[in-house]
Amino acid sequence: MTDRRRINGPSSGTIVPTFISSTSSSQRPNRTRQPDELRKIFLKTGVTPSAPGSAYLELSPSSTSSAPTLVPTSSNLKITCTVHGPRPLPRSVPFSPQLVLSTNVKFAPFATRKRRGYVRDSTERDLGQHLESALRGVIIGERWSKSGVDVVITILEGEESCWWGDEGGLVGADGRAGSANGSCGLMSVLAGCITVASAALVNAGIDCVGLVSGGVAAMVNNSLSSAEKRALGSASESSSVCVLDPSPPEHDGILRACVVAYIEARDEITEIWLKGEAGSPEETEQLTEKAVVAALASGVVLKAAVSGPTDEETFSEDVDMS
């Protein structure tokens, strides 16, 4: 069914270009960072003057490809967030003693390798749910009864779940979910969403118990070729390594990944999302702790971004700690 409120392309649809890999660009990007080193985060508040609160987050590209190519080997996350509210709920909404939080996450049509639609799909709604539970634990809802707040996130550039070379020799620009990495790219996106939403909430002056920041950790296969792995045989499990802030295109196989939303001031986790083959409870715990370390690191950037222009009383103690 065509969307009559938008301008539609050719009725027969269009196909995504199929690229032939030239030898120069057909190499998987390598992780040049240390396992516990995050990508550089740029975070700025107040980018949307027409909204009460807003923030913009960008991750610097993790690896620069040697040859310029039309098929980007990796992408850098770019997220904007606006916060509207607190404002009175419409009359039709029943009484609520707490602040009604609604989150909305949308990818721009050009954000990913595969062009996105205009209407929110299940992935975006899922991300919105995760974000809502992450923020619900940090907002002091009792202070804003009968009010609502909208957190609107637009992802201008997302993160890919796999390297485009994993999709087969002749690769289209459509990034179907890579079998090896699952939807690990979404986890980095969620961590970014949590951090940027937290900054925008502070910018809007909404009372929070602390700053919540997102962090991702993943257990990845060590950079061994499959032949080497076979030689090691059963020792393949031990060749996995835990990395913070993984960039999925850089890794051949991500065994499991974990994203947390962490409030440093209270040492609380408000949201946790684990994916992949679950190991023993100890391994899971270890991975979660690593994700918290990543969240702490992005929390440093968050503090610096919000402590400048806004002088919220709620956050004074957090700022003092830094």
């Binding site: 270009p17 199929t18 032939i20 030239s22 039309l70 002749l170």
Partner: peptide, 9 residues
């Protein structure tokens, strides 16, 4: 039987 593209800038 299809269109192919080059990724060279």
């Amino acid at each position: 039987g299809s269109i192919l593209c080059s990724d060279a800038v």
